[in-house]
Design a binder for these strands. Structure first.
Lengths: 231, 231
DNA sequence: CGAAACCTTGACAATGTTCAATCACTGTGG
DNA sequence: CCACAGTGATTGAACATTGTCAAGGTTTCG
């Protein structure tokens, strides 16, 4: 496999030529069309997944059969690394593509061995894990403190820094991702429109009064805008 | 400092004698009485904190001045490592002891340098970070899916595996830690009593009908009891 | 004993969910 | 090209859950 590709991935930067070579032996690069299953139950806990392009939904089922959205990933994001040191993983998930998608996959065991061999690689993963932890902490705080409209506003504010101002995937999924029902999402958007002059035509977002939105969204939060967290 | 102490800490196990020595130079061991401030704002983002004994509350303030509980730590738990790779930390917190407490503290910068020097140390922290991530993912799922009574029941179920069956700190704090108001906590306990035969006298917990409780708590969850997560 | 902190309870308000109906948009097959 | 099915989005009404505020009870500790 193309080693230039690996070097463009920050998780794999700075590692030894030997490790690069070993990585290229382990890694599969794959392309999926919209709606395809990328990882199913038995595989997800044994596979590290890195997204080169597109959008991917991670989900599982509760005991009662409803779908639980674990995360939605896009360019440069990844999952599965937690299984490297978790012997008894009770929480599998499935991965499905939401759009045309390009990914790298590696068997967790092989990746783990390389992390024990290559110090730089383990440092890269440590850095990524700590940043993810940081983001998760923020999300926890938001779930506890913000109401539905504030969570959406917060998402929009963070979206503007990385994406064009339009929703990257459908509203139903975004609603579940933000921890609310689609109906609640719909109504909360109206509230944002009334209180903060935010307009939505289809997927496009127009923030007419930025300071109003920031004031509404961030007033319960411990962070100070702009909080440069990943969406 | 006593190197035997370090070797008993799994985060520091397996590292080189040189690293051990450097660690012992960096580390301060401290004792605090109940209610004392262990870390304040400017220090928390520059300090790694490891709990040897006791209970510690991590908290911050929202823009509107209310207290936000970040976490509650006890024996073998730690915090601050996320600041090692976060250049621009907007989220400080304060740490306060809830009981007589014994801790180790290290400057983050020094710890970070050691992680670049000692491969085993970085692996240990990677492992800890990935496990924490796992726990945070679970907590997120619970916040989204479980109601107040289920979250308390889940907490009690996980508590039983590590602790005697009594609440380790006061109900007000536990309520906030589980993402609800103290009033809601109080009422949710009554619900657990009625629906699942759980009794509380003061801080003591009696589960009279385990399977009833498990069935009530875990029905929306994606995990299968017993899910051996840290409390 | 008395103050302070913690806990509980009731009444009510705010927020979010559920269920059912409807609308809008998209792609397909005739 | 149009009819139609399927998906996603919105809306209303009833309901469930949680939060807020105020009052009073309990425990703890000096």
């Amino acid at each position: 496999m193309n080693t230039a590709l690996f070097q463009s991935v920050s998780l794999f930067s700075g590692i030894s030529p030997d490790s690069l070579h070993a990585l290229s032996q382990l890694t599969k690069q794959q392309v999926f069309k919209k709606g395809e299953v990328i990882l199913d139950f038995p595989h997800s806990s044994k596979t590290f997944l890195y997204v080169l392009k597109g959008w991917i939904k991670l989900f599982k089922e509760s005991a009662e059969g409803e779908e639980i959205i674990v995360d939605v990933l896009t360019n440069t994001q990844h999952c599965g690394e937690t299984f490297a040191f978790n012997e008894n993983p009770t929480d599998y998930y499935e991965a499905q593509s939401l759009s045309e998608t390009e990914v790298l996959t590696l068997p967790i065991e092989g990746l783990k061995k390389l992390m024990f061999t290559d110090h730089a690689l383990s440092i890269n993963f440590l850095q990524a894990a700590l940043q993810k932890q940081h983001t998760l902490n923020m999300n926890m705080e938001h779930m506890a403190i913000q109401n539905a409209a504030q969570r959406i506003g917060c998402y929009i504010l963070r979206l503007r820094r990385t994406q064009a101002s339009q929703l990257p995937y459908d509203k139903t999924l975004l609603a579940l991702r933000l921890g609310m029902r689609p109906e609640t999402f719909s109504r909360a958007l109206h509230k944002l429109h009334e209180e903060c002059e935010v307009q939505l035509e289809g997927d496009a977002i127009h923030i007419l009064n930025m300071s109003k939105l920031i004031n509404y969204v961030c007033k319960h939060c411990s962070k100070i805008y702009p909080c440069n967290e990943a969406a």
